[in-house]
């Protein structure tokens, strides 16, 4: 007896497809089928999440970088000396304009030739998740470039455009160039991962690396103009952190 004949006689065998009605399945088969669909869906969700992390977050970051670049005015004429208060230090008037930035505002440009000649990112003010998703972030309590103390920057190394993806390739002696409304500041690293993927690994709570004088009490008087970069370790996780640090070797005030 063919299936067509079964359907016509109105006596379908279990599992046979009758036009207009769902196929009849035993309860265990339905449970197993539903469970299988759930597993497939869960797998697809995990894959999608990975796609989001590796690629989706980068789209948002790229758009944000475009916006931030538009905010930056590095011509040097317009942004400084909005208020006429007398500067008590040589560069305090331009410092004020950096200090006036709100969290999330465009702060300056960072260039690291080790990562490629076209490697250039707009730094944002702040290191909250909402700031760092837009680009490398300036620790708001840390010094500004060219000041005594420690100019500290954090950035992602997986997802969100992964600015610091090649971080372990940083070597002692590498150059980090920062450009702000104040001028251009060239730092030379004196402590870096040196090509070791586990190099300069620190604990999450090792905030001493971004202190004004790293390794000294937080109120120690800084005598050096330093830079410190932090990112995550391992690359696709956050159980630890990784850092590199250096000292100012050259500056060109606007």
């Amino acid at each position: 007896m063919t299936m067509r004949e079964q359907a016509e006689t109105g006596q379908p065998r279990s599992g046979a497809r009758v036009r207009g009605t769902p196929p009849r399945r035993s309860v265990p088969a339905m449970i197993a089928g539903g469970f299988g669909e759930l597993l497939l869906t869960a797998g697809a969700l995990v894959l999608l999440f990975v796609v989001y992390l590796l690629w989706g977050t980068g789209l948002q970051t790229a758009a944000a970088q475009d916006d931030l670049r538009g905010q930056l005015d590095l011509g040097g004429s317009a942004s400084s000396s909005q208020d006429g208060s007398s500067p008590d230090e040589s560069d305090s008037s331009s410092d004020r304009s950096l200090d006036e930035l709100a969290l999330g505002d465009a702060y300056g440009i960072i260039r690291i030739p080790r990562f490629g000649d076209d490697w250039e990112w707009v730094i944002v003010q702040g290191v909250e998740d909402d700031d760092l998703r837009n680009g490398p972030g300036h620790y708001p309590d840390s010094a500004n470039p060219g000041e005594l103390g420690n100019f500290a920057v954090a950035a992602h190394r997986s997802g969100h455009g992964e600015p610091f993806a090649p971080f372990p390739r940083l070597h002692v002696g590498d150059i980090v160039e920062i450009e702000t409304v104040d001028g251009t500041f060239v730092y030379k690293l004196d402590d870096a991962p040196d090509g070791d993927s586990d190099g300069n690994r620190i604990s999450i709570s090792d905030s001493w690396v971004v202190d004004p004088v790293p390794g000294q009490p937080r109120d120690a008087e800084p005598v050096e103009k330093r830079i410190t970069l932090t990112t995550c370790w391992p690359r696709f996780g956050s159980s630890h952190r990784m850092y590199a640090t250096g000292v100012l070797i050259e500056e060109e005030q606007r």
Binding site: L53, G159, I202, I204, V209, S238
Partner: peptide, 15 residues
């Protein structure tokens, strides 16, 4: 996904 990422704290880069 943004919520999951934040909740799992899998991309923290600050000390």
């Amino acid at each position: 996904f943004p919520w999951v990422e934040e909740t799992l704290e899998i991309s923290e880069v600050t000390v």
